[in-house]
């Protein structure tokens, strides 16, 4: 399947219209310790396979989208 991103506002578009925003992570509580915050900020699952990630439609509707993508095949998995 071609690597295109289905934007709910703009339709199927080239990934080059988007900015990649990284894998989805959950921030620790504001009061969490240094380890928790640094793990969150600097470590990545860096999945070779399916992961949830953020994309921002820079050249389109300029909104953030959550996309489930296979990082090996570029297949986008529909929810």
């Amino acid at each position: 399947m071609p690597f295109l991103i289905d934007c709910p506002n703009c339709g199927r578009r080239s990934p080059y219209e988007f900015k990649f925003g990284g894998e989805c992570k959950r921030a620790p509580d504001p009061g969490a310790d240094v380890k928790a915050w640094c793990d969150y900020l600097y470590l990545y699952e860096n999945m070779s396979g399916v992961q949830d990630e953020w994309w921002y439609h820079t050249m389109g509707c300029r909104s953030w989208l959550k996309i489930r993508r296979n990082t090996v095949t570029h297949e986008i998995i529909e929810e």
Partner: peptide
Amino acid sequence: APVTEEWFARWCR
């Protein structure tokens, strides 16, 4: 401006 626009959107996404 473009980075800021994205940044603002990021913090309410």
